[in-house]
Design a binder for these strands. Structure first.
Lengths: 208, 208
DNA sequence: GCTGGTAACTTACTGAGAGTAGGTTACTGG
DNA sequence: CCAGTAACCTACTCTCAGTAAGTTACCAGC
């Protein structure tokens, strides 16, 4: 099999196995077996277990990024963009909950704790949110935009994690809470012409 | 040495070693050596490596909880309570950055991923925040209070993590951002008699 | 002051699993 | 038909979590 094809197959299987039983519980021997190859081949492709974990996570991250940015691209105005992005995020989670969990765990599982790896995830997500905030609320200073971006990302992650033990909270409601919260937080900074916001495509019952 | 004293000593040393090099990199043999005891004694006390990690983290968590709740107890009104809690949180982080990092990693490092352990941390933190939100904004429905609580906790954690790579953001500014963000998000729900809030004990320059 | 019991602690092992050295097969261009 | 190389494997090593089977220190009761 060609190197690229093999890599894809290995990643696919690894994601599945990791999703089933978690990073820690799964051994490289087991993955190799499930892939129908020998262990050194895994090391050939990914260098180490951490490398494989990393690659697996990158794959999921790319999917998530694509899903959310595609959803956001359909929006007409910043308010709707927030809503669509949030909704796509939480819906992605419903569709790939185990893989998604892995994504949230990533910064912790990989070597040094807070290395460039985390930085990469962060930049990707904040690259989606920060410009949006800046567009919504141009008078907020850049430092605050960065901080708010982090707060929003953290809020999403936490709420997503929380949903695992509270399935009664639908993706729509979660997205709704996040959107409301964010929107209200920024309300007084929001550009006047965006101010009477469209309520979102189809607003579920929410807090406000 | 008495069992309780020994346990304390072991935990103290373990926290130090873990903080220096991270959970994963440190072996039980190494901790035993640094403690001046044999490995089975560690197992006698903590059952497993995860058990030791868990106990270590619980210790840090207790300290954090004490610090933040003590700070909050000094406040006169909810607005100030938010501010003091946030400030204590970020200042605790400056004082114990490595141990604090461990705390954030905990849900991920421990066995099953999202078990009761996470739940425990969460309940402790949200026990501090949720009643406060409810007091601040009594017309927000309970489900929304819970969700907002999670969002706020996640925001704090993320912002704390972010500060590791952005030391230019002081604890005061971080607390300020969190407080502003939260306050604004809830503004329209806040009880009228709390509405013109005292600006906090000593407000640093902030976003709004 | 010797003895049975127990609490604190140790040495010396097992087993699992990450990572590797050194091939072997299979296919490609000359 | 023969290099050379890409894909892949068998068979190891070594670190580290966890354990079995003690040993020492101390304290009751006789």
């Amino acid at each position: 099999m060609s190197r690229a094809d093999r890599r894809r197959q290995l990643l696919e299987t690894a994601e599945q196995v990791f999703a089933e039983r978690g990073f820690r519980a799964v051994s490289m021997d087991e993955i190799a077996e499930r892939c129908g190859v020998s262990k050194p081949l895994l090391y050939e492709h990914f260098g180490s277990k951490d490398g494989l974990v990393q690659a697996t996570i990158d794959r999921v991250r790319a999917e998530l990024y694509e899903a959310t940015s595609a959803a956001m691209a359909q929006a007409r105005d910043p308010r709707e963009m927030v809503w669509r992005g949030m909704l796509a995020y939480f819906e992605f989670m419903d569709a790939h909950s185990r893989s998604f969990m892995m994504l949230l765990q990533e910064p912790m599982v990989v070597p040094g704790g807070t290395d460039d790896v985390l930085e990469q995830t962060r930049r990707q997500q904040s690259g989606l949110i920060a410009p949006l905030l800046a567009a919504l609320a141009p008078d907020v200073p850049p430092a605050a935009v960065e901080a708010y971006t982090e707060i929003i990302i953290g809020g999403c992650e936490r709420l997503a994690l929380w949903r695992l033990s509270h399935p009664e909270l639908s993706a729509r409601d979660a997205a709704r809470y996040m959107t409301d919260f964010t929107w209200n937080a920024l309300r007084e900074h929001v550009r006047a012409d965006l101010m009477p916001p469209p309520l979102g495509p189809d607003a579920p019952s929410g807090a406000s």
